[in-house]
Design a binder for these strands. Structure first.
Lengths: 191, 191
DNA sequence: TTAAAAAAATAAGATATATTAAGAAATTGA
DNA sequence: TCAATTTCTTAATATATCTTATTTTTTTAA
């Protein structure tokens, strides 16, 4: 199992002994996925949190009218799940689908709970992870509310250039909350 | 200092000995604020996180064009700050203003860091707090992207009836990302 | 390599939401 | 209590964004 990325991700914030590292790794499972595969489907229960070793994933919600809204992208070194459903054992609100072939490490809710018991320091790690996720999400809310579509697009490609280059424009439009046609139009106007 | 609310808020998730409770309380400061006072102003550095004993606060961002976007409301038992600025010691992106007279307990960044050192269990508490905040924010993002204004309004008053009753309609409009005039119009159409 | 499928661009017409302006209602503060 | 201020409503016009349809370009898979 490819574990170097996840260990350095964690050891940015907490230190682990060799024994603890081994214990942690024993709770993980590796999974390899090809393009368009689903890691999670809306309505299913969501029992795992995923760490991305390589590749790109997209989490998106489909509403009653069939409209596709991108919740997040995840690339190398990101964690992804439907957090609300994962934590509260509820049916998922989102789909998670492979955009570019992935290697992920999955951690089940049960194993995460064990991990907190065995190595309480992981509370600190996930606190920091959740803090960062919350701050990112809040900044996105502010920008969604206060900026017009073109500026949201510009902020997105500035903040996530690697993602912007790797995913379809219509998926970026879906992240920004606009139609692909409109994104096309505002891009054309500004060249 | 009125400490019963904050202690029961914390002891929902972690247990504290009497000594630990006292130590924690020794790190807090009470503040009483009247309507329209600012707890934090955009551009200022944000050194505290606030727990609301009573009253209502509103966090909002003013963009370059002067448009007001409400980031969050906080009522009894909520925590509020500009989290990103608080954690990273950056100038605040938001204002926090009193909507209804408040009693708050403030905890400084320095004291929070001390607290993590002295009682590492607080990592668990803030992990859960941040998890909940992240999930709420993510749900809001999904709704902002996928629902039209009227449905976002209906969800808001359903989810936060006490807030909806206590704050100005134009502040709800600002939370929803629409103008007060438009909120008026869609409310009128649906009565 | 090529046919098929998917994505992107373009454009016309439709709709949701914003802007401006004015008057009515509610709240505030002296 | 009352004048002043703020908030809410209404309505006309303006604008951002969507919808639908078509064509072009790119990607995919056999």
């Amino acid at each position: 199992m490819k574990s170097d990325h996840i260990l350095s991700n964690i050891c940015q914030y907490i230190s682990l002994s060799p024994v603890e590292k081994d214990y942690f790794l024993s709770l993980l499972e590796e999974e390899n996925l090809s393009k368009k595969e689903f890691l999670l489907s809306q309505g299913e229960s969501c029992n795992h949190i995923y760490f991305v070793n390589s590749g790109i994933l997209r989490a998106f919600h489909i509403n009653q009218e069939g409209k596709d809204s991108t919740v997040m992208f995840a690339v190398k070194d990101w964690w992804i799940t439907d957090m609300h459903c994962f934590l509260n054992v509820l049916p998922s609100m989102v789909n998670i689908q492979v955009v570019a072939p992935c290697s992920v490490l999955k951690l089940s809710k049960n194993n995460l709970d064990k991990l907190y018991d065995e190595i309480p320091r992981f509370n600190k790690f996930f606190r920091i992870l959740m803090q960062n996720a919350y701050c990112r999400e809040q900044l996105r809310t502010i920008q969604n509310l206060s900026l017009p579509a073109l500026e949201r697009y510009e902020q997105f490609i500035k903040k996530y250039p690697h993602i912007a280059n790797a995913v379809a424009l219509k998926q970026i439009a879906s992240y920004l909350g606009i139609t692909p046609e409109f994104l096309s139009a505002i891009r054309a106007k500004n060249d």
